[in-house]
């Protein structure tokens, strides 16, 4: 190869790649508005992102698959735990961890609200169906929750029940699987558990879920119907 040809490879190779890359960057900026629905990128979401950075969450958790690999990915955590579930874990991590610990970060209630808003916004980014494990969850939970067919099912997601309980094999391992709970427990028993978990089983470690009277009724009817 001549020295001249070598120079041509350098200049052409660099230029082609650079032009393509910058061109697609411009186009990405155009499309990302829809893909990340920037219309929902509220001030609260941005404040939540600052909270996310302030506590260096990303050096244990991945988000969009980036960051550190010490703790679960946060891209779709809103699907998995809902807003109350996320808050519960951040407030009292020792209740949700066994042999790998999460620190007490000491977020204020306002910071926690913002963080949840941020994570909810992130969960709606179009990630080409990544990550696979949460797509499985969504498919399973979708039968009960995602379509919003029942307000009780939405509450199950929103109030963070998935943090400890499983439906269709997905969810947390701390509490019992609830896919067929309706064939084991009556509506009345379930409502008693939701009012005070220890009223049925004095050894129960389940916290009393933050539910209004109407919400308890909706959630109870949803669970009693899971047969």
């Amino acid at each position: 190869m001549s020295a001249k040809a070598a120079k041509w490879i350098f200049y052409l190779g660099t230029l082609i790649s650079l032009v393509l890359f910058l061109g697609l960057t411009v186009d990405t900026h155009r499309q990302i508005k829809t893909l990340t629905h920037t219309d929902k990128l509220s001030e609260q979401v941005v404040a939540g992102k600052r909270v996310w950075q302030k506590y260096n969450c990303n050096d244990c958790h991945t988000i969009l698959g980036f960051g550190s690999y010490y703790a679960p990915d946060m891209t779709k955590v809103y699907w998995r735990r809902g807003s109350e579930g996320i808050k519960a874990v951040v407030r009292t991590p020792e209740r949700f961890t066994t042999w790998r610990k999460m620190p007490h970060l000491g977020l204020t209630d306002l910071e926690l609200q913002d963080l949840v808003a941020f994570l909810q916004w992130v969960s709606e980014i179009d990630t080409q169906d990544w990550p696979p494990q949460d797509q499985k969850l969504r498919a399973a939970a979708g039968r009960a929750v995602a379509l919003g067919v029942s307000p009780g099912a939405t509450l199950f997601q929103e109030k963070g029940c998935f943090a400890c309980h499983r439906l269709y094999g997905t969810g947390g391992m701390l509490g019992p699987e609830l896919t067929h709970v309706g064939s084991r427990r009556t509506y009345e028993t379930i409502e008693r558990i939701l009012t005070d978990p220890r009223s049925v089983n004095p050894q129960a470690t389940m916290p009393t879920p933050p539910l209004s009277h109407e919400e308890r009724d909706e959630l109870g009817r949803f669970l009693a119907g899971m047969k």
Partner: peptide, 16 residues
């Protein structure tokens, strides 16, 4: 390869 190859980090982050 390297400049446009940056794209292998853009698969799942909300880009086209």
């Amino acid at each position: 390869t390297g400049i446009a190859g940056t794209g292998h980090h853009y698969y799942w982050l909300g880009a086209p």
